[in-house]
Nucleic acid binder design. Structure first.
Lengths: 335, 335
DNA sequence: ACATAGACTGTAATCGATTTCAATAGTTTA
DNA sequence: TAAACTATTGAAATCGATTACAGTCTATGT
């Protein structure tokens, strides 16, 4: 077997009797290389099976062509869809993405941001925030940071997201139009801005129908299917509908309702968020809010790479907001 | 704002009036650095906010501490669970993982393997194979390759996987014990070795009960929920059970059965594979085969990093096979 | 008192590329 | 015919670290 460990540009230069500058010029397609020499170099590279050491190239160019993507957990379908599309786009444009799971930890978020400081990556995409903006801001001097999905009003960086307020507004309005007057509201628990906007939309719909005063049932820590199961049991008797804030929670509630012979939507209407695959498959299928995840992911990557390739300042606030759509299914409407 | 772009070890050396070797020694915790100088260096680093450029370190050490993980698609829950655990383990041991989606393309697989040649990563983990082993083998000279889940009998590298044959054997046996005699078999379509082993297990069970002759219904291209919906309509009349090879396919079949008022399991028993979250939530819940995904992922990362840190040869065949478990649910048993 | 080991520290080479600069040869223009 | 280009090449500096080597100084042993 050929022992081709650690072939360098010097080996190529030696093989074809030229200097390494010339070899480098051929690699980088520079003008002013005689045709015959160029061919000699290409032949030598071919024969040796040489490929440039990209770490050395990274050092010279001060570019890694790697982007860190921070997500809470990749098994959450919302985030894995974001990442799938981001990776596809990045790969097309010659970039790699490095997966970073914060698992909701401030420390891990900072550790991953430090990759910007140590130049392991050229940029960072945040899909959630654990630390205060002022702490994250200090990393801006090392490279661009772009926010996707999550955002912060004070942040002076690009933010690509959907209109969360509209989502919860449309969902809540739909519930009210189905005749519901007492609607429980589920929220996460982190000090997320998404949550804030969603709450605004919820309140806006209630206000429009003069229902604000009678609605004050808020369930917290609503993230997972398990949380949904728990929440089902925490619902007061007089509640007829639940805004869950996530399809997982909705699934949990529906599952537990089935176990307890509570009819959905007759006895309890449930609305999800995200339009995840499962929302269409479960019985009853779940009314939910669709977010154009792939578009958001594409745009995010586009903005990031544009920032990387034009050396413009990275602390400019740009907002790209995508529209959401209400998807009506069985969990909120009688047949 | 502090303009701390591009601080190098030289800046630190200058700041504390020492040579960069001494600074480097402090960074790397070498012995033989006078206590006072060490403190001076630490103070200078602290004050400047210096962090070593890891690309330079990578060049010197010829190690990137990055591992490429090739998966078909990250949105497939099986792969996202693998990746979640791998990333967690890698991160704990100081490694980053780079996500590579082959989307079942030979070319993309080769492109990603080339990251080993250009030293962008220290090692590659394959969770599926698109190319022939002899083509992949040539990359072994550039760094370790470890196979996880998928495998190849000729491959002389570590392989971490579950006992696929046992999985289909247990599942099929279970169906037979429920009284089924004509069982349809779904398979992917790629020349996967997993598929081969599964088929062996299926046949083994049939043979044990002398049912081999009456069973020859094979449905191909069974991967997704959509495939499951299609396959439901392709099933011959006399079939009473389906071995789907994947929970997605099972979900599709169940969904379509519901639409067509076919009772499961009374008129058709369905068995999945993977024990995905959805298999427990759908109605009827799906009997399936559980694979210890997290254990497989952990072991894979452990083996990879061990290979990276001990400079032992990478072309040694080691097999770690984990057991599977039958999970009986509603889709195969009458109440 | 002198050899020797131990504790430090700095100089310079090195990792593998890219790029500036200078040198040379061959053309073209004034 | 000299000046001014253009095309081509290589030597050497550079990116930002680590480390082999050599040198200095101090302490210990005989």
């Amino acid at each position: 077997m050929t022992e081709s460990k650690g072939l360098t540009i010097n080996d190529v230069a030696r093989k074809c009797g030229l200097s390494r500058s010339t070899v480098s010029r051929v690699i980088n397609n520079h003008p002013y290389v005689a045709k015959e020499k160029k061919e000699a170099v290409l032949k030598a590279m071919e024969e040796l099976g040489y490929k440039p050491n990209s770490v050395a190239q990274q050092l010279r160019s001060n570019k890694t062509h790697a982007i860190a993507v921070l997500v809470p957990r990749i098994t959450n379908p919302f985030y894995s869809r974001l990442i799938e599309k981001m990776e596809t786009e990045a790969s097309l444009l010659g970039y790699q993405i490095i997966i970073c799971q914060t698992r909701y930890s401030k420390e891990r978020e900072v550790d991953y941001l430090d990759m910007l400081r140590s130049r392991k990556v050229d940029g960072v995409i945040l899909t959630s925030i654990q630390n205060d903006w002022k702490d994250i801001e200090t990393y801006l001097q090392y490279g661009p940071i772009v926010m996707c999905n999550e955002f912060d009003d004070q942040a002076t960086i690009p933010s690509i997201r959907v209109n969360q307020m509209d989502g919860s507004y449309l969902g809540t309005k739909h519930l009210i139009e189905q005749g519901h007057k007492k609607i429980a509201y589920c929220k996460g628990g982190t000090k997320s801005n998404i949550g804030k906007k969603r709450r605004e939309g919820f309140n806006k719909a209630l206000k429009e129908y003069n229902l604000s005063s009678v609605n004050d049932v808020v369930l917290t820590n609503a993230f997972s299917i398990e949380d949904g199961k728990r929440i089902f049991h925490e619902l007061p008797e007089d509640i007829t509908a639940v805004f869950t804030g996530g399809d997982e929670v909705a699934v949990g509630i529906i599952f537990e309702a089935r176990e307890n012979r509570v009819k959905i939507p007759e006895q309890l209407a449930v609305i999800g968020f995200d339009n995840q695959v499962i929302s269409e498959l479960i019985n009853p299928s779940i009314t939910t809010i669709n977010q154009p995840i792939e578009e958001v992911a594409s745009k995010t990557m586009e903005v990031m790479i544009q920032k990387l390739e034009s050396d413009k300042p990275s602390n400019i606030k740009e907002i790209y907001e995508f529209p959401v759509k209400l998807i009506v299914r069985q969990s909120t409407v009688l047949e």
